[in-house]
């Protein structure tokens, strides 16, 4: 049993290929309208960050991105999309929080967690960078203050 786990862990650490692209599933926008996720990418690089209302590091990360966004945009062109994985019952509170925190970026609501499953997110915060073709070029789980600097570095590499 432990052997299986060990093999699995090793194998996954070694298979470190970035093959993901943005899947096409339906999520809601700020007003409750349905949006196809595939229509959101393909123009410029995107930071795609999954969050939930009870995930504290997620809120710290999104607040940090909200702070840095203006400054970073002077150097690189990109968009931020925050995807709430809160279910139908908490989605209103997620909307309230997004507005209350004064987030200046696009907020989407993945009520049935279709996008979360399709992108294999098992732990929030989970943040991706997609290039202008919609391909995942970077991803990171967890957040500690300062982690956002790495996102900026990656965005600059995409220029």
């Amino acid at each position: 049993m432990k052997k299986i786990l060990f093999i699995l862990v090793c194998a996954f650490l070694s298979v470190n290929l970035y093959s993901q692209t943005m899947p096409n599933v339906q999520v809601e926008d700020m007003t409750g309208k349905q949006v196809n996720t595939a229509s959101l990418v393909g123009d410029k690089p995107v930071i795609l960050s999954f969050w939930g209302i009870t995930c504290k590091p997620c809120l710290i990360e999104l607040n940090a991105l909200n702070e840095c966004m203006e400054e970073w945009k002077e150097e690189v062109d990109f968009d931020i999309i925050a995807v709430s994985i809160d279910d139908a019952r908490f989605v209103s509170r997620a909307r309230s929080m997004a507005k209350g925190h004064d987030w200046q970026f696009t907020c989407l609501f993945d009520k049935n967690q279709d996008l979360k499953r399709a992108l294999n997110v098992s732990f929030t915060p989970h943040t991706f960078i997609l290039d202008s073709k919609g391909k995942v070029v970077y991803s990171h789980t967890g957040y500690v203050p300062g982690s956002e600097e790495e996102l900026f570095e990656k965005l600059k590499e995409l220029k």
């Binding site: 299986i4 194998a11 298979v15 093959s19 098992s122």
Partner: peptide
């Protein structure tokens, strides 16, 4: 079985686009 599945995964990943993409996650 698991190893061969991973093999398939790696091959598919490497040849992405034409043959589709394979993604996955592990949590333990």
């Amino acid at each position: 079985a698991l190893l061969s599945m991973l093999g398939v995964a790696a091959t598919l990943s490497a040849q992405n686009n034409e043959k589709g993409t394979l993604t996955g996650s592990l949590e333990s």
